[in-house]
Each structure stands twice: as structure tokens, then as C-alpha cells.
């Protein structure tokens, strides 16, 4: 591999990590350790929104159908009344749930999303009211007007279409996917999944015997990035079918790179990777204690 392609490979990775860091929300608490929040993806926000719509509208819709089929009232009048009812129900639902559950509607709770204040402080009632009233203005009222209640004129339709396009486009162009209501209220929507503490992979108590021996000459090739890639391979265990074959490929790639000559039997693949991981991590930790932080396998070349 040529030096220039190595550099570009590294730059791509760096740019990717930078991009990720830029999208992250960083808040500095009094403890002085920056806390990171992950911006919620637009897909998951849409999902939460649909769930909320389901919750607020299904009951009304059933009631509506019941009235339509059981009483002889003109469709348009009942429709008008029910649309009115949805307006009376919707904004209060969002505002109340976000007030009571601290920035989480039921849909957001189920999708692991949450609204936080941009300054990291407690979410104020004002912020919640604004972002949800703006949601009415941004989306629901224009849609109702677009599909015409009480004779909407052509110009109004065009205005509403332009308006809707604008409001839907805004989150795509915002660094942190804020919609207009979020910008005005000063809020972010974050994804807050429950992450479990996984098992420690480095199984080295310094006592039990090792199947494989690694010398410093084997361990000086890789850096943090490769170690963490190996970690993801080891952690993916039982989930992926055909894992053994994949592990075999990794074993071969590693042996070739580090010049490990002793043969590794097929059924020993996992043990090899696990022991190599432990040895490599111990080695890198030792180097970093001496001030030599190795980001990736290109650590010997300075750019």
C-alpha cells in the first residue's frame, strides 16, 4: 500500500470521527468533565411522532367512525367538529406529557428519545410550550388548511405547501437536526438509549497459562483504532451467523500483518483473537503510560 493512500485512509477516518463529534452535543457540568449527548436521528424522531399521533388520534378516529355510522349527520359537519377536537387535544397532550415526564412524550419514551434544553439546565415550561405550539404552526395547521376545511383558496394552498416544504427541510440543514420550534425554544432532541455494561474482554489475571505467546515485535503494529475494531469482532459473538469463518479471516489478516508464524488451528480462532486482544491492549496501555499514544496502525509515520 502506498504512503499517500495510507494517509488518505487515515484522513477519511479522521473526518468521519470529526463529523461525529460535531453532531454531538457537549455540555460542561460544574465537575469539569464534558458530558456528551447523541443527537436523535430524524428517523427515530419520525417514529416517535407517529406513535404519538397514533395515541392521540386512534380513539378520536374510532369515535368519529362510530358517530358517522350510527347517526345520520352530514359527514362534513362531523369532520369539521372532529378536526376541531384534534386541535383541542393535540397541543395539550404534547405539552402536558413533556412537562410531566421531563421532555418525553409517550412516543419519545418508547423510542428512547428526550428533549433537553440547549444550556443543559432544567427544561422550562416556556420551552416546552413554544416547541409544541410551533409544531402546530409548522405542521398540523398547514396540513389541515392544505386539505381544505371550509373552502381553502388556491393561493393559501400554495402558501401552505411552500411553508410545509420549508419547515420539513429545516431539520435536514441544521447541524443538530433542530426544527424551527427547537431553534426558537433553544432545545435539542437527543437519543438516550440504555447501554449495558458489557463483559470485560481482557481476561488476564497474570496467573492462568496462555495458549499463545506474543512478543513486542508482534504488538507494535496496531493502534487504538484496530484494537477497537477487533473488540467489535469479539463482541459480536453469537449474534452473527458464519462468525467462525469471519473470525478465521481476521486471524489470518492479523497473523500476516504482525508476522506471527506459529500455525493457528481453525477451532482455536476465538482463543487466538481473545488472547491477542488482551496482549495488544496491555501493550498499548503500557506505551500510552510512556506518553506514546498510538491512534492507529500508521502511528510510525508522522503526518
Amino acid at each position: 500500500m502506498g504512503a499517500s493512500s495510507q494517509i488518505s485512509q487515515r484522513n477519511i477516518r479522521k473526518r468521519y470521527e470529526l463529523e461525529r463529534a460535531k453532531r454531538r452535543i457537549e455540555i460542561l457540568p460544574p465537575e469539569g468533565v464534558p458530558i456528551h449527548f447523541e443527537v436523535a436521528s430524524l428517523g427515530s424522531r419520525l417514529g416517535a411522532q407517529l406513535l404519538d399521533l397514533l395515541i392521540t388520534h386512534v380513539g378520536l378516529l374510532l369515535l368519529f367512525l362510530l358517530v358517522i355510522f350510527n347517526f345520520s349527520v352530514p359527514f362534513s359537519q362531523v369532520a369539521a367538529f372532529f378536526i376541531l377536537l384534534t386541535f383541542a387535544l393535540r397541543a395539550p397532550y404534547y405539552i402536558l406529557t413533556e412537562l410531566v415526564w421531563n421532555g418525553r412524550t409517550i412516543g419519545k419514551r418508547l423510542s428512547g428519545l428526550r428533549v433537553i434544553s440547549a444550556d443543559g439546565q432544567r427544561l422550562s415550561a416556556y420551552q416546552i410550550v413554544v416547541r409544541n405550539l410551533m409544531k402546530e404552526l409548522e405542521v398540523f395547521l398547514p396540513i389541515t388548511l392544505l386539505f381544505g376545511l371550509g373552502g381553502t383558496s388556491g393561493e393559501t394552498r400554495i402558501f401552505m405547501i411552500v411553508w410545509l416544504l420549508m419547515t420539513f427541510a429545516t431539520p435536514f440543514f441544521q447541524k443538530r437536526n433542530q426544527r424551527i420550534g427547537d431553534i426558537i425554544a433553544g432545545t435539542y432532541v437527543i437519543a438516550l438509549p440504555k447501554t449495558d455494561l458489557t463483559k470485560e474482554l481482557a481476561q488476564d489475571d497474570g496467573v492462568s497459562a496462555k495458549r499463545f505467546e506474543f512478543t513486542p515485535s508482534h504488538l507494535e503494529h496496531y493502534g487504538r483504532f484496530e484494537l477497537q475494531t477487533l473488540e467489535s469482532v469479539l463482541r459480536s459473538q453469537s449474534r452473527v451467523p458464519g462468525l467462525e469463518k469471519r473470525e478465521r479471516e481476521v486471524v489470518e489478516a492479523i497473523c500476516k500483518k504482525i508476522g506471527y508464524l506459529e500455525p493457528v488451528r481453525f477451532e482455536e480462532g476465538h482463543t487466538f483473537l481473545s488472547e491477542f486482544y488482551t496482549a495488544q491492549r496491555a501493550f498499548l496501555e503500557g506505551r500510552s503510560l510512556l506518553g506514546d499514544k498510538r491512534e492507529d496502525k500508521f502511528h510510525q509515520k508522522k503526518d
Partner: peptide
């Protein structure tokens, strides 16, 4: 009723 609704919206 429908007049009310349409006044409000339209």
C-alpha cells in the same frame, strides 16, 4: 357547529 369550525380554520 360547522360554521364555527370553518370560521376558525378557513
Amino acid at each position: 357547529l360547522s360554521a364555527f369550525a370553518s370560521f376558525l380554520f378557513s
